[in-house]
């Protein structure tokens, strides 16, 4: 078997036969059966799923218990949790015009849930360390997609819960 190639990889496309198209997509879809979870995130509330047979509880929710094929039920957890894993990045939130800035994302084990939630941590990243206690909040609710409202704060005092009218 020998090498084979066509074309010429280069960093400069000057003078080459190329076309540039600007695609604009407007996308719309339902939130599905996870809607209670997403509505809760917007309000800073921790809406989890619980298997009625074995009481295993997941936040974010799983819609099917691996061991019991019955419909899960919705339960509200306290919203407190603990950071398991942490990363700091300078990435802008999708679908926003914001300037990229350092922010922390974490895997958080919410009290009462057996799985971990991927979430943003509000404010400067250096306020957080692994094993630290955090609380789900609606204090830093940015971005058009409700998953972007999954955001935790460093103290219960900073927490904000916005009850739907």
């Amino acid at each position: 078997m020998r090498d084979h190639a066509i074309g010429r990889p280069t960093d400069s496309g000057e003078g080459s036969d190329r076309v540039e198209l600007l695609l604009r997509l407007r996308h719309s879809q339902g939130l599905g059966e996870l809607a209670p979870y997403f509505r809760g995130l917007r309000e800073g509330r921790t809406i989890a799923a619980r298997c009625p047979d074995c009481a295993r509880t997941w936040f974010p929710p799983r819609l099917t218990c691996p061991d019991h094929t019955v419909a899960v039920e919705w339960v509200e957890l306290s919203g407190s949790g603990r950071i398991v894993s942490l990363t700091v990045t300078s990435a802008a939130l999708p679908f926003t015009d914001e300037v990229p800035r350092p922010q922390a994302f974490a895997l958080v084990r919410v009290d009462g849930a057996e799985n971990l939630a991927l979430a943003r941590l509000a404010g400067p990243p250096d306020a957080y360390t692994p094993d630290q206690a955090v609380w789900l909040s609606s204090a830093d609710n940015r971005g058009p997609h409700p998953s972007q409202a999954a955001c935790f704060v460093a103290s219960e005092a900073e927490r904000r819960i916005e009850r739907a009218p």
């Binding site: 974010p60 990045t89 990435a91 922010q103 943003r120």
Partner: peptide, 18 residues
């Protein structure tokens, strides 16, 4: 996509957390 992909964490951050 719904729960993790659009949070803003992105591929690099998910690998980093792992």
């Amino acid at each position: 996509t719904e729960v993790d992909g659009l949070t803003g964490a992105g591929s690099a951050s998910l690998y980093a957390l792992s």
